[in-house]
């Protein structure tokens, strides 16, 4: 990924006020990128356990999916969400989350994306998401 691509990507992320509300940050490692949801008190859903809010994890995964689509095809603009399905696998502990998004099919109008979110290790995800999105080619 060129520095210009990187900058463009960071700029598009900043245009999502909700991503700012959640505290989502991109993390670049060479050519790869991942999204981080740094721990924030306001993303707690159950203060007693404590556990992260399912909605915060869900929103984070949706942002990760849309970001991955944008990164692969910057010319297509922001994808519209049609439907999502989330399996909550483990309790979201009060610590940072990492998203791993994979596009399973990038069609002419529809894109299918899988996202997993993990905390301690990538092989013990706390949630698994799949969504389908509508894109408009410019």
């Amino acid at each position: 990924m060129s520095p210009a691509d990187k900058d463009r990507f960071i700029t598009s992320l900043k245009q999502i006020p909700y991503a700012e509300t959640l505290g989502v940050k991109p993390l670049f490692m060479g050519d790869n990128f991942t999204l981080v949801l740094p721990f924030k008190e306001s993303n707690i859903g159950n203060p007693i356990l404590p556990a992260l809010h399912g909605g915060a994890i869900g929103g984070f995964m949706e942002i990760a999916a849309v970001a991955q689509i944008l990164l692969d095809h910057p010319e297509e603009g922001i994808a519209k969400t049609i439907g999502i399905n989330i399996d909550y696998l483990r309790r979201g502990k009060p610590q940072d989350c990492y998203a791993c998004a994979k596009i399973t099919r990038h069609g002419r109008r529809i894109v299918n994306v899988n996202v997993e979110v993990w905390q301690d290790r990538p092989d013990t995800p706390i949630a698994a998401f799949h969504g389908h999105f509508l894109i408009q080619k410019k």
């Binding site: 999502i16 006020p17 700012e20 909605g55 869900g58 929103g59 949706e62």
Partner: peptide, 21 residues
Amino acid sequence: KLSGNAKSRVVHGGVVTALLD
């Protein structure tokens, strides 16, 4: 602060997810 696009001002899908959850 809940919008998914600063220009269109439309609320982000993730917010609707949180409300429904």
